[in-house]
Design a protein around this nucleic acid. Structure first.
Lengths: 354, 354
DNA sequence: ACGTGTTACGCAATCGTTTTCAGACCATAG
DNA sequence: CTATGGTCTGAAAACGATTGCGTAACACGT
């Protein structure tokens, strides 16, 4: 910067003003300085500027686990919106480790970040209290537990449950079950409420043992299938509170020789990219990743500009994405008919081959 | 820091020495200072320390696209190893946009990062030349093109092609095809070479029109299926150079009423998490994500410590992961047998139902 | 008693910016 | 011609750490 100043024949203050295009600087001078900047290929040092001006144009993002498709989608969009606003993104994987999280937050504080986005803070997290002793803004995306007063962006989880239920009811299902995430996290309860309310308003009964609490993981979906099947009169439709479990359930059903959606319909939540890669493609309730990410970044930047926390709660509406994994419940009579005609076809083919 | 010094009754220099536990500092003094640090809950400012000492303990990661399972897996492990070494990770999504990339690199240079990891630099990338005019170390992971002299970490792509071919040959396939990524990126050529060499060494012929060049995307796999089927004598096995395309092909085959692995075997490369979520589960050649990430971070840190570029090329060995999507080629006679017995079963079931 | 070496610590400069304050310059109005 | 005000620019003090250099204190051998 000193070099630039020397070349342009001005002082460093002026150079600084040109860079941040502050107002009181003459057109001729500005031109001179800009030329000098180009000449030495000068890049202002963000550490120094951050140190002095208290803003390094950097935000932090804490995710529960990198490599989960839904979190990764958030990362993608948050990076996009952050960059669009000239902010850098520093990423941390929490991995369900409260100490690791504390370390990460500590690092962010020490780096003087302009704000922090959390995806789903856990119960044992000390992060928010750490931050409350500072002035650093934060927002919680896809909220977990115990974030009563925090600025928050979520999808409309109640609506999500309702949409799933309405879809199954409209298809004619009378006997449904559901698989939830951990019920100590509020978004799971919200989704469940929306589902059960709609279901019972339609006159169906959702029995206690048809609500299975699980943990959002694919393998858990697979492992749940035997329990699902062993119940007396089988359900004809199943709602999982996220796609990963839904996909697990579909895999498990297939392993047991059952067919989706003929034998049972399956519907999820999220609309991760895998949904379209399966056969049948998964019907699901879309999580508005892009809109949520955008809202989170904007809320954060608003807090940052304002200089104080905005304890706002934003809920983004959802929508149903109908694909191939849901269908009307099977009807024994027509089923039987189909089997018989298939038999005839097969028989003639086989004879011919022989 | 001044406060801490005042409380402990020492100078700031001493406090600094305690923090970086430099050697010449008395045990008693150290204790005093540490106590003072705890008292005011002091956190050293990383911007200031970075500014002065020229190392902010930060590395940059440029990925071609967040949200691709394989890249996300790299992100996960790189974050893990970076953090294990007390480094922060700042993430950028390039999205095939050379200008965006240049912006990101510029930002990193200005932040004085200790190093940069690239996943797959593209052809039009100006990033490497930008960096060559600085002293910032970098390493290229899963290399693309034109990185002749750059420090590089790759999987053993030739071996990957060989393993895939060997597996199919061992199963008894004589008529195979393959779907590649863009052949102007070297790793695709390497994989292909390994495959074709092994195949022809075994006496099979891989015809020119059985090598389909594609672009690593799921949809491309789906769309390729008609072309695959319309060729005269059908192939019995298919190798895709990544899992996403392999999965697309499996979906496309299913859409055309064909069954994997009964009608055709499919094998991929990568071992992304989705492989286990499908039915049939995808047989594949594993990309050693974890090992590669680790090697990249370590190489970077070595360069950083040494203060100069190490133009080393590290190739990590691969392994085959056999799952459900590959099987011996179908045999018309036994196939026919199976159909006949199925017919009998169905018939009796149907009669019973009626 | 003195030189010599070692260890522990403080002073002050420094990293590369931003920002306050004051001064220079010019135009306009009185 | 002088007061007044506005616009532009420069000097210098921060920001919060690290670090080279100097010095006090102490132990040791002579």
């Amino acid at each position: 910067m000193k070099d630039v100043a020397a070349i342009a024949g001005v002082s460093v203050s002026t150079v600084s003003r040109v860079i941040n295009n502050a107002i009181p600087v003459g057109a001729r001078t500005r031109e001179l300085v800009e030329q000098a900047i180009g000449e030495v290929n000068y890049r202002p040092n963000l550490l120094a500027s951050g140190l002095r001006s208290k803003s390094g144009n950097l935000i932090g993002l804490a995710v529960p686990e990198i490599g989960h498709q839904s979190f990764d989608t958030f990362i993608k969009y948050i990076e996009e919106y952050a960059r669009a606003n000239k902010y850098g993104l520093i990423l941390g994987d929490i991995q369900n480790d409260a100490d690791g999280e504390a370390d990460f937050i500590d690092q962010l504080i020490r780096r003087n970040v302009d704000g922090i986005i959390f995806i789903r803070v856990s119960d044992e997290s000390r992060a928010l209290e750490m931050l409350n002793s500072t002035t650093i803004p934060y927002v919680v995306l896809d909220r977990g537990a115990s974030t009563a007063t925090a600025p928050t962006v979520v999808m409309d989880n109640h609506q999500a449950g309702r949409l799933a239920a309405e879809h199954l009811i409209a298809l004619g299902h009378r006997d449904v079950a559901c698989v939830t995430g951990p019920l100590n996290v509020s978004l799971c309860r919200d989704r469940l409420d929306g589902f059960t309310q709609t279901v019972s308003a339609a006159g169906l009964r959702l029995l206690r043992h048809d609500i299975h609490e699980s943990d959002f993981r694919f393998e858990s979906g697979v492992k749940l299938v035997p329990a699902l099947l062993e119940r007396g009169p089988p359900v004809t439709a199943l709602w999982a509170q996220n796609d990963l479990m839904a996909i697990g359930i579909m895999a498990g059903l297939k392993d047991h020789g059952l067919s989706v959606p003929r034998d049972v319909s399956v519907i999820g939540v999220d609309d991760i990219v895998s949904c379209r890669m399966l056969r049948p493609q998964l019907t699901t309730v879309r999580q508005p990743f892009r809109e949520m990410s955008r809202a989170a970044v904007e809320l954060l930047l608003r807090e940052s500009a304002l200089g104080e926390r905005i304890s706002e709660k934003i809920a983004i509406p959802t929508e149903l994405v109908v694909r191939q994994s849901t269908a009307p419940p099977r009807d024994v009579r027509s089923q039987c008919q189909r089997v018989l005609s298939t038999v005839e076809t097969l028989k003639s083919v086989a004879e011919e081959v022989r």
